[in-house]
């Protein structure tokens, strides 16, 4: 699927048309602002239209004969596995952050990432996780008094 730039251009063209169409639809309902010469919806509509036209142009161009096609440098099967694993780890990290707290999730995320992707012993992963968390705690929470999500284990 989408092995070449030709296919990629087609797909991105479709995506941009969809985004542009959504923007157009959402822009028509924008209310008029009080006393302005430029209606607040003018630019969003113009940009939505540009995206639709540009997306269509990408599709047309991708179908033309002159198009010099080129393979997209996708990862191999193992690469994809890693890719999904990394994205899933990051998404889990973000999803659990509020419930478990920033410190806890960061520790788990860093340790898990290093353990999964690195060829290290588990203690190396745990040590990095611990070290980072300690650094973050001291610098951001203690010194800069930043309000990071605390979660259950409120520090």
């Amino acid at each position: 699927m989408l092995k070449t730039l030709r296919a990629g251009d087609g797909a991105s063209g479709v995506f941009l048309i969809v985004v542009g169409a959504i923007a157009l639809a959402a822009s028509t309902t924008i209310a008029a602002g009080a006393g302005g010469r430029l209606h607040p919806r003018t630019l969003p509509i113009a940009i939505g239209a540009l995206l639709v036209l540009g997306g269509a142009w990408l599709i047309v161009r991708a179908r033309s004969k002159q198009y010099q096609d080129q393979a997209i440098d996708w990862p191999d099967r193992a690469g994809w596995r890693n890719w999904y694993a990394a994205l899933a780890l990051m998404a889990l990290y973000a999803a659990l952050m509020q419930a478990l707290g920033f410190i806890t999730t960061t520790f788990i995320f860093i340790a898990a990432f290093i353990w999964y992707f690195g060829k290290f012993k588990p203690w190396v992963a745990l040590a990095w996780g611990f070290g980072t968390v300690a650094f973050i705690y001291l610098l951001f929470i203690r010194l800069l008094q930043m309000e990071l999500p605390a979660g259950w284990l409120a520090f």
Partner: peptide, 18 residues
């Protein structure tokens, strides 16, 4: 990279959240 990667993610998240 397996060590640098997660550190990048963590600091990016802090930065964005802050």
């Amino acid at each position: 990279f397996p060590i640098l990667g997660p550190l990048i993610v963590a600091f990016t998240f802090i930065g964005a959240y802050s």
